[in-house]
Amino acid sequence: MPGLLLIRPVGPEATYALRHQVLWPDEPLDYVKIAEDADGHHFGAFRDEELVAVISLFVTGPEARFRKFATRPDCQRQGIGSQLLRHVFEEARRLGATHIWCDARRDSAAFYERFGMEPEVEIFYKGPVAYVRMACAL
């Protein structure tokens, strides 16, 4: 039986390895770092003290955006990402945001729809990967 899941703030550097492993393993590690990391709120989901998922939240006034959401492959489809995303929605509300969005990989759009997010723009590409902007009110 998997251990208790704990979600807590982490520094941006704690997110890099998982971002790299899950999102862009064929790119250099620096590819997953973003200029705004120093201004973000970064969270990790820990199971038995092991980091298994990460997400980064950026809030500017009423607007919140989450980026670099990654769950270790062997921990996917276990509800960990859902718990982490709910936590980020609450944190965004706490920080005063009323709207949240992300650039979602097209093959993950159905996951975000379960949280009330809807596509806002046409599909676009980052390299070979198809994305769609998903958003909702908080």
Score class of each variant (00 low, 15 high):
M117G: 05
G127K: 07
R133V: 13
F46Y: 10
G127N: 04
W24H: 14
E13H: 12
E113M: 10
L6T: 13
G81I: 09
Y112K: 04
Q78G: 09
A130P: 13
L5F: 05
P128L: 10
L95A: 00
T60K: 14
R106S: 14
V52H: 06
I123A: 11
C102S: 07
L51R: 08
Q83D: 07
A35Q: 10
D74E: 15
I7F: 00
D37F: 05
R72F: 06
H20N: 10
I55Y: 01
W101M: 12
A38I: 11
C75Q: 13
T71D: 12
S56D: 00
P2A: 07
R72H: 15
A104S: 15
R47C: 15
C75W: 15
P119K: 09
T15Y: 01
Y16F: 15
Y31R: 14
G40P: 02
E36N: 09
D30I: 09
M117K: 01
R19Y: 12
D26T: 11
D48M: 06
F89S: 03
R77F: 05
E90M: 12
A70R: 06
V132P: 02
P28G: 07
D107K: 08
A38T: 10
K33S: 09
M1R: 12
V88E: 00
H41G: 00
R19C: 10
L6E: 07
G44M: 07
D107M: 08
W101E: 12
Q21G: 09
E122V: 06
Y16Q: 09
R8P: 00
A17Y: 11
F43Y: 15
M117R: 04
I7T: 00
C136K: 15
C102G: 01
E118L: 13
A64M: 12
E120L: 15
G3C: 00
G40D: 02
P73C: 11
P119C: 03
V132D: 03
P28E: 07
Y112G: 09
R105V: 08
A64P: 05
D103W: 06
L51Y: 03
E118K: 14
E120I: 09
C136S: 12
F69Q: 06
G127A: 06
V52F: 07
P25A: 09
C75K: 10
E90R: 12
H42S: 09
G11I: 06
R114P: 03
F46P: 01
Q76R: 12
A64C: 00
P128C: 05
D26W: 10
D37M: 04
A38G: 13
G116Y: 05
L18K: 08
S56H: 02
G44C: 07
P28V: 10
E50Y: 04
S82D: 06
C102Y: 02
A110Y: 03
F69K: 01
Y131H: 15
M134K: 03
H99Q: 11
V22D: 06
V121G: 13
H20V: 09
S82Y: 04
G81F: 10
